[in-house]
């Protein structure tokens, strides 16, 4: 399949909300997931495309905010030796406000609003267990609306690879 007509390409540039992936896009992404440093030429050869199609489509997906090809790094690179899940129950305040207040702290690796017996799921990454007491009894204690926090300590990460989600974040890994 060859590059899209220019008119269609132009349309996509200002209609990001309407951005749609086609099969060729998906195949290119699949190649990039396997090896993000594969050259356009290598990807083109394995998919029976021409290199310029590959580069145009990658750029188009990147510009639409739908794709980032990046190096991801292991927890070990960051020295995150301690991992704790906190199930947070909220009372007297909207859960979203509490979650947003908690999310600003660097120790909070992930924060989600969830359904179930608690409202906020937090994942904390710490370099040392000594960081925990001041975080809980000092930092988090100042956030209003927290009713309870139930911890679970991470003993081993068997798998952790969330390759979808917001891709616009430019925060360094």
């Amino acid at each position: 399949m060859l590059a899209r007509p220019a008119a269609e390409k132009g349309l996509n540039n200002y209609m990001n909300d309407m951005f749609a992936f086609d099969e060729t896009d998906r195949k290119i992404v699949e190649q990039l997931r396997r090896n993000g440093r594969a050259t356009n030429q290598q990807i083109a050869e394995s998919l029976n495309l021409i290199a310029s199609t590959v580069s145009t489509r990658i750029r188009r997906m990147e510009e639409a905010g739908m794709l980032r090809v990046v190096a991801v790094s292991d927890f070990a690179v960051h020295g995150y030796h301690i991992l704790i899940h906190l199930a947070v129950q909220v009372s007297g305040r909207p859960a979203l406000e509490v979650a947003e207040d908690l999310a600003v702290f660097p120790e909070v690796f992930a924060a989600h609003l969830v359904t179930g017996s608690y409202e906020i799921s937090l994942l904390l990454t710490l370099r040392d267990i000594d960081e925990l007491p001041p975080l809980i009894t000092g930092t988090f204690a100042k956030v209003p609306g927290i009713k309870s926090m139930t911890p679970a300590v991470g003993l081993d990460i068997v798998r952790y690879a969330l390759d979808t989600g917001p891709v616009d974040s430019r925060s360094a890994a």
Binding site: E30, R33, R34, V70, V72, S73, D74, F75, V77, H78, Y80, L96, A99, E100, L102, A103, V108, F109, A110, A111, H112, L113, V114, T115, G116, S117, Y118, I120, S121, T125, I157, V158, R159, Y160, A161, L162, D163, T164, G165, P166, S169, S171, A172, A173
Partner: peptide, 27 residues
């Protein structure tokens, strides 16, 4: 016990566990 995410407030998808199998691809 399943909890459905109704809103993602913060996510870190640049830090992962890199395994032998390298399972980063799809799933």
């Amino acid at each position: 016990e399943t909890s459905l995410v109704v809103k993602t407030v913060k996510i870190s998808n640049r830090v992962v566990r890199i395994t032998d199998a390298d399972t980063l691809s799809q799933g």
